[in-house]
Design a protein around this nucleic acid. Sequence first.
DNA 1: CCGCCATACCTTACGGTTCGAGGCATGACA
DNA 2: TGTCATGCCTCGAACCGTAAGGTATGGCGG
Lengths: 119, 119
Amino acid sequence: MTRTRTNPDFLNGIPELLILEHLTRRPMYGYELVRAIEESSGQQFQFGEGCIYPLLHRLEEAGHLSSKRETVAGRSRVIYRVTAPGKRKLAETIESWQRVVDTVNHILEGHQDGLPAVS
Amino acid sequence: MTRTRTNPDFLNGIPELLILEHLTRRPMYGYELVRAIEESSGQQFQFGEGCIYPLLHRLEEAGHLSSKRETVAGRSRVIYRVTAPGKRKLAETIESWQRVVDTVNHILEGHQDGLPAVS
DNA sequence: CCGCCATACCTTACGGTTCGAGGCATGACA
DNA sequence: TGTCATGCCTCGAACCGTAAGGTATGGCGG
C-alpha cells in the first residue's frame, strides 16, 4: 500500500496530535482524555469518543501508546501512556504541524501587510 | 440533516483557503492555480487537479467565485475571480484558521490551566 | 507528416478521518 | 427503584483529498 503521500498530514490529524501531547504530560484513560482535550482547548475542539477511542487503539497497535487496566471503585479503566517511539512520533508530528502553519501563514502574509514578496 | 458541526473546519480545508487567497490577489484559471499554489508553498502543498477543479466548481456554485471563458491561442481557459461574498468568506476562513492555530499552539506551549479566555 | 509532450479542461473510484448515534455495564444518589 | 454519570466500545454516514484516468488542442522534433 504505502500510500506515497505528496502532502504532509495535518490537514487533518489534530486529534492524534492532541492525544499524544496530553498523554505525554500525564497518563490518562479515554473518557478522561476526551474531556481534557475539550477543556484545554477552551471547548473549541470537541472530539467525541467515536473519534478518540479508535485512535487510542490504533496508536497502541502502532506501538506509540501502552495501556494498563486499572480498577478504581469498582470501575474499570484503561490507562494509556506514551512510549518512547510515541514521543518521537509526537516530536515529528509537531514539526510537521509547524511546517504547515508556517507555510500557510507565509502565504497569507504576502497579502495582508502588502509585503510585496521581495524576490 | 444539516450536519451541525461541533468542530470548525480546517482540520482540513486548506485547499479552499488557498484558492480564495490566491484568486483574491489575481484572477487565474484552474491549471494555473494548481501550479501557483505549488510554487507559493515552496512545493509543500501539491493539491492535484482532482482536488482543485471540484472545489472551484463548488465555490462558484456557492457564489464565492465567478468565472468567464477566455480563448488564448486556440486554448480555452476558464478564468475565476473572487466575488464580494467570496471575499467575506475568505476573511471568515482566515479567522477560523487562526483560531485553530492559536488554540493548538497554546496547548502545545504547555499551559495546563484552561484558556486565559480572551473572549 | 507523425508522434509525443505540454496545456487545459474534466470525472470517477478509493481510502482515510471525523461525527453522530448508538450499545453495554456499573456505581451513586435521590 | 430508577435515573444519571461514569467508562468502555462499535457502527454507518459524510466529507475530503489522491491517484488515475479521459478528452481535446497546439507546438515541437524527427
